[in-house]
Simulated assay, not measured.
Amino acid sequence: MEVATALVTGGVGAAVIWGAAEHDIGWGDSGPGSGYFPFRIGILIILASLTNLVLALRRRGFANEVFVTNAQMRSVLAFGLPILGFVVLSLLLGLYVAAILYLSFVMIFQGGYRPLFAIGLAFAVAVAMRLIFPIWFKVPLLTGPIEALLGLY
């Protein structure tokens, strides 16, 4: 499984590099090109994947171990299912609404935070995302029908 994971993450790194190479990956007079950081992140992902691949191939003697226990799988699903929900909600409702719902849910049900605090912080994160990306950096984020109703795009 470690070999398979290293190969998959290496493929993700290659996809990031491929996508970044379609843009300017250099540094110009006005600063970094739009592909500058993603290109370097892709390189880091591939290097980390290669490291994991080499380590996995050196430890081949542990093939009889249990890959994942029921308790471990519950932990993975407790993390992974909300992330999957976040992705689906982002596509349906937009990134800001999905972020508010995801952060509120995770903070309340997994983190044990008070609902008012969790919802308030989730709204603050969404406002910060709105200020940082589309307004200050001029990088539009995925919006949905609620943002359109509010006139955000």
Rank of each mutant, 00 (worst) to 15 (best):
E2V: 10
A4N: 10
A4H: 04
T5C: 09
L7Y: 04
T9L: 11
G10R: 05
G11H: 00
A14S: 03
A14Y: 01
A15F: 08
A15I: 04
A15H: 02
A15M: 02
W18K: 03
W18F: 09
G19V: 03
A20Q: 01
A20F: 00
A20W: 04
A20I: 02
A20R: 06
A21S: 14
A21I: 04
E22Q: 08
H23I: 03
I25V: 10
I25G: 01
G26K: 02
G26L: 03
W27A: 00
G28T: 11
G28H: 04
S30T: 10
S30F: 10
G31I: 02
P32C: 02
G33F: 09
G33N: 01
G33E: 01
G35K: 03
Y36A: 04
F37Y: 07
P38I: 11
F39S: 13
R40F: 09
R40V: 07
R40N: 13
G42M: 01
G42E: 04
G42V: 02
I43F: 11
I43G: 10
I43N: 11
L44P: 13
L44C: 14
I45G: 00
I46S: 06
I46N: 07
L47F: 13
L50D: 14
T51R: 14
V54G: 05
V54N: 08
V54M: 08
L55T: 13
A56F: 04
A56G: 06
L57G: 09
R59A: 12
R60N: 12
F62V: 13
F62D: 15
F67M: 15
F67L: 15
V68S: 09
T69S: 15
N70K: 15
A71N: 14
Q72G: 15
Q72L: 14
V76M: 15
V76Q: 11
A78K: 15
F79M: 15
G80F: 14
L81D: 03
P82G: 14
I83F: 13
G85H: 09
F86N: 09
F86G: 09
V87Y: 12
V88L: 09
S90T: 14
L91Q: 15
G94Q: 04
Y96S: 06
Y96C: 04
I100N: 03
I100G: 00
L101C: 12
L103S: 03
S104W: 11
S104F: 12
V106Q: 01
V106G: 09
M107S: 12
I108F: 08
I108E: 05
F109M: 05
G111R: 06
G111I: 03
G112H: 12
Y113P: 08
Y113G: 04
Y113N: 11
Y113R: 13
R114A: 12
R114K: 12
P115C: 11
L116V: 10
A118Q: 03
I119D: 11
L121G: 08
F123H: 07
A126F: 01
V127M: 00
V127I: 06
V127H: 00
A128N: 02
A128S: 10
A128D: 12
A128Y: 08
A128L: 11
M129N: 07
L131G: 10
I132Q: 05
I132A: 07
P134N: 09
I135V: 13
F137R: 04
K138L: 10
V139C: 00
P140T: 00
P140V: 08
L141G: 01
L142F: 05
T143A: 10
I146K: 07
L149R: 07
L149W: 12
L150V: 03
L150N: 08
